[in-house]
Design a protein around this nucleic acid. Structure first.
Lengths: 124, 124
DNA sequence: TCCCATACGCACCAAAAGGTAAGCATGACC
DNA sequence: GGTCATGCTTACCTTTTGGTGCGTATGGGA
């Protein structure tokens, strides 16, 4: 675990960017915003990510306090990953990033392949 | 220039993160928020960045539409880099990231070495 | 016994990223 | 001629990142 805990930058913006900028991290966190997920679930939700990188990124987000990991004593093995309150507090930031990303695509005339910005399902 | 223009992700949030997550990019953009800067100026403002990486990141931000570059016909050579309107539109997002970064440092008890979040000087 | 689902870990590798240490070009000035 | 300031460019290198392709462990069920 200490191997994972790379020192974060001193500058707050660099720090924030560092915590969410690894491959698949934003996607992973997006899926954890609406509840705990098992590794296998996340793998099914994000088919293109390799298990190795998925575990790696989850472990890193855990080390940075965005994600918590709960191990159940059962077989088959069960481990739930959840967004921590700190991780959840990233939602508006992620939304801002997403809105801007869409704006950026429009500005560069690349709207053809741009996706939506629903970060968390609307609770009814 | 085509060598620099790496395809941006389809997902808006990944796209946004990709445009600002390179080394020194946030710092560079921060300095451009309050007006055009020459390469040498930026180098003095951010002494730790190497010229090679500075140029590289500026060129990439230019390719992504965040930064514009104006070449003057003079000697010594003069090139001004400015934040584009699109680049300027990142300011609130950067502020959100910065606020969150500070919050993150507090949450992890690492407030000792955290910096401020003044993104652009207050116009009086 | 085998197969299943789950959650990892490891060895290896290619590509990407960032950095060091040069070099070149320009015109102006001495 | 040399020096200056500026803005690059290049070669080389190290480190980091993300991926491929295995392997291991657990208990339950057939």
């Amino acid at each position: 675990m200490t191997k994972l805990l790379k020192r974060l930058p001193v500058l707050p913006i660099e720090r924030a960017i560092r915590t969410i900028s690894g491959r698949w991290k934003a996607v992973i966190l997006y899926h954890l915003l609406d509840g705990p997920k098992r590794l296998s679930e996340l793998n099914r939700l994000v088919p293109s990510v390799t298990q190795k990188v998925l575990v790696q990124q989850l472990r890193e987000m855990e080390a940075h306090g965005l994600v918590s990991r709960e191990v159940f004593r059962q077989v088959p093995p069960r481990v739930d990953y959840s967004a921590t309150p700190l991780g959840l507090s990233l939602e508006p930031v992620m939304l801002a990033l997403c809105d801007w990303g869409q704006r950026h695509a429009e500005a560069l005339d690349e709207v053809d392949a741009i996706a939506d910005c629903i970060v968390r399902p609307v609770n009814t």
